[in-house]
Design a protein around this nucleic acid. Structure first.
Lengths: 343, 343
DNA sequence: CTGTTAGCGCATTCAC
DNA sequence: GTGAATGCGCTAACAG
C-alpha cells in the first residue's frame, strides 16, 4: 500500500533500523490508517527464534495450588504452540528455605530469556531479582509480589481484600457474637507467607471497621504433621464451645472439612481459600460454606502469555495484574470452569 | 511422513473422497501417532470460503444484558480474525411478540450458514427452529434453551440453581423469619421469560426444602413505566413493614437499588441478577449485597466460537453448555474482568 | 538503505 | 486416485 517492500516494512515494525525516514513515515502512516495489528500466531509460523523460559515455584502436588499455576502456564504454551519456547521448571520445598536458596542460585547462574517466579520466601526472591536485574533478564511474579523488586509484571489476587471478604462472609452466616476460629499453619520459622499476613490484616480490619465483637480464637497447628491434626483440633474444640465458624486463610481448609466429616460436626460454618481437591470436596459435601478462588490457572496463563508477547513484540506491559476473587458455594462449584479463559 | 503428498492428506483430513484405502490408512496412522491437531488460525489463513452467520436477540441497550452477549460474539470474531465471517444482526423488541415474529420470518427466508438465537418468546423460537431444521441450517441458543428444538448447542446458566442460590444468599443475611420481597416485572401477556419461571421455582424449592418460613411478598410492578416505580414501591413498603430483604430474579434490580438510595433505605438486604450498569452501581455503593453474574459475554463468545469451529471442521459439538454463576460482592466487583476468557 | 526470495502450516486448484 | 504449485501474513537470509 505504501509502495514499500515487505522486507522494509518488517524492519520498521521491529525497529531494526536501516530504514530511511521517508519510508518509515509512509509506512507508519498506512499502519495507522489500517489499524494494523500483527497476528502473533502467524508471526510464530515464520519465526525461527527459540525462547528459553525458566519457571520456579514450590513443588507441585496434585490438586494443589501450585499445580494449577503450572496448568495455566501449560495452557498458554498450547495456545501459542507456534512460538517455540523451551521451559525449564525448577521447584523447591516451600517449607525449606535452603532448598529455595539452592534453586535460586542455580537460576541466577543460568542464561535465559525470561523467568516466572512463584513467590514464597521474600528475602530469597529479593536476592534473585537483583541478579536478574543485573543480567537484564525480565521476570514476572505469580501468586504475590515482593517489594523493592522490578518485575516486568505480577499476577496475583488482592490478598488483603481476600481476608476482608472472608471476614464479611463468615460473620454474615454465624450468630452475632459467637466466636470465630482461625486455623493457622505454623511454618518452621521464616518471614514468608506474605499472602497470609495480608489476608490476616484484611480479616481483622473488617471486624474492627464494622465494630463486630466476635472473638477470634487462633487455632495453631503444625502443618507438617497430619498425625497430630485430630489431637490438636479435639483439644481446641473442647476448650472453645462458643465457636460458630472457622476461617482458614491458607489453602489447607480441607483438613478441617475432613475433620468435621469424621467427627460428624455440622453446626460450625467454614470459609476457606483455594480450589484444592480436598477443599472442593468439603464444599460439595456441605462442610465448607464459602470457598474463595483466586484463579491460579489464570495467573499462570497470563504470566506466560504476557512474557511471550513481550519477548516477541517488546510491547509495554501492565505491571499490576489483579485476578478475580471468586466466591463459590456448593451450588455454583459444578459450573466453575477453571479454564474459562481458554475456551 | 507417510510418503503421501499434501494434497492427498488434505483430502483425507476433510473426508473429500477420491482416496485409496491404503493411502488413507497410512496417513490416519501417522495422524494418530503425532496426535495431529489442525491450527485453526492457520487454517483461516488459507481458507477462501466466507461464512454468513445470522444473530438475533432482543434490542441492545448500553450496559444491559443483551449487549454483553453481543460483545462476547464480537470478541470471538476478533480472536478468529483469519476466518471470514459476515454477521447479520437482527434484533427485535422483547416486549412485543409481533416484532419478534417479523424478524424471525425474515430469518426463515434467508440463506445463511448458521444462526445464533437469543431466546425470549418460546413459541416463536420453536417455529423458527423448525424452519431452520428443514433448511439444514445449524443454530445455537444463548441465554436459555427451548424444549422440542434441535439446536447444535445452547449456552446458558442454570436458571433453576440461580434462583435456588438467591434464596440461600438472601436467607443467610436477613433475620430469621423476616419477610422477603420479590420484585416482578409484569410483562404484557406472554408465555415468555422462561428464565424467570425457572429461577422462581429454584427460589421456592430452596425455601421449602430448608423448611424456612420467611414469607415471600410479591412486588408486582409495571416494567415499562418508570414514572410509577416510586409510587408502587412506596405503597408496597408502607403495607409491609417486616421486609428484611428483597430479591429480583430478573436483571432489573438496579431500580430498587436506586430507590433505596433516593429514600435513604439502608436496612433492607438486596440480592439481584446480572451485571448491568445500574446493578453494578448498586453493588459498589452498598445497596445490593450479592449480585449474581451469568457470564453473558462468555455465552456469546462460546456460541460464536463453537459455530466457527463447527463450520470449519464439522467436529462433534457438546449440546449442553452451562456457564458459571458468579457471586459478586462490593469487595470483588472491581476485580471482575468480564472478558477473562479472552486475555 | 532496499527489494527479492523462500518457507512456516494449511487448503485449494489443476494437471496428470 | 494423485502430486505439484500457489498463496494466505509474516520473518529471515541474502543480494544488491
Amino acid at each position: 500500500m505504501a509502495g514499500i517492500s515487505p522486507g522494509t516494512v518488517d524492519r520498521i515494525l521491529h525497529n531494526r533500523g536501516n530504514v530511511s525516514e521517508s519510508a518509515r513515515i509512509a509506512v507508519e502512516d498506512i499502519l495507522q490508517k489500517v489499524n494494523y495489528r500483527p497476528n502473533i500466531h502467524i508471526t510464530g509460523l515464520s519465526l525461527k527464534r527459540k525462547y528459553k523460559v525458566v519457571i520456579t515455584t514450590p513443588n507441585l502436588m496434585e490438586g494443589e495450588y501450585w499445580e494449577s499455576i503450572h496448568l495455566g502456564i501449560q495452557h498458554a504454551l498450547e495456545e501459542f504452540e507456534n512460538i517455540r519456547v523451551e521451559c525449564i521448571i525448577l521447584t523447591y520445598n516451600q517449607y525449606d528455605i535452603y532448598s529455595c536458596r539452592d534453586v535460586y542460585e542455580e537460576i541466577a547462574g543460568m542464561e535465559s530469556d525470561a523467568v516466572i517466579i512463584g513467590t514464597t520466601f521474600k528475602e530469597e526472591t529479593l536476592r534473585l531479582s537483583k541478579h536478574l536485574d543485573e543480567k537484564d533478564i525480565p521476570y514476572v511474579f505469580v501468586d504475590s509480589t515482593v517489594e523493592n523488586t522490578l518485575p516486568l509484571a505480577f499476577f496475583t489476587s488482592d490478598h488483603y481484600i481476600c481476608g476482608f471478604l472472608i471476614a464479611k462472609l463468615i460473620t454474615s452466616i454465624i450468630p452475632d457474637g459467637s466466636e470465630i476460629g482461625m486455623l493457622q499453619a505454623v511454618r518452621t520459622g521464616d518471614e514468608s507467607a506474605n499472602t497470609s499476613i495480608l489476608r490476616k490484616r484484611g480479616f481483622s480490619d473488617y471486624l474492627t471497621q464494622k465494630n463486630i465483637d466476635n472473638n477470634v480464637r487462633k487455632m495453631p497447628f503444625t502443618a507438617m504433621d497430619p498425625v497430630q491434626y485430630d489431637e490438636q483440633l479435639d483439644r481446641f474444640f473442647q476448650d472453645h464451645h462458643e465457636i460458630g465458624g472457622v476461617v482458614v486463610l491458607n489453602s489447607r481448609g480441607g483438613i478441617l472439612a475432613d475433620y468435621f466429616y469424621r467427627k460428624g460436626i455440622r453446626d460450625i460454618r467454614l470459609v476457606c481459600v483455594d480450589l484444592t481437591t480436598p477443599n472442593v470436596w468439603g464444599l460439595r459435601n456441605g462442610f465448607i460454606d464459602f470457598l474463595i478462588g483466586q484463579e491460579p490457572e489464570h495467573q499462570g496463563f497470563l504470566a506466560m502469555k504476557t512474557l511471550i508477547e513481550y519477548l516477541i513484540y517488546r510491547n509495554p506491559v501492565k505491571l499490576q495484574n489483579y485476578v478475580r476473587l471468586d466466591i463459590l458455594t456448593r451450588e455454583t462449584i459444578d459450573y466453575y470452569k477453571r479454564f474459562n479463559f481458554m475456551n
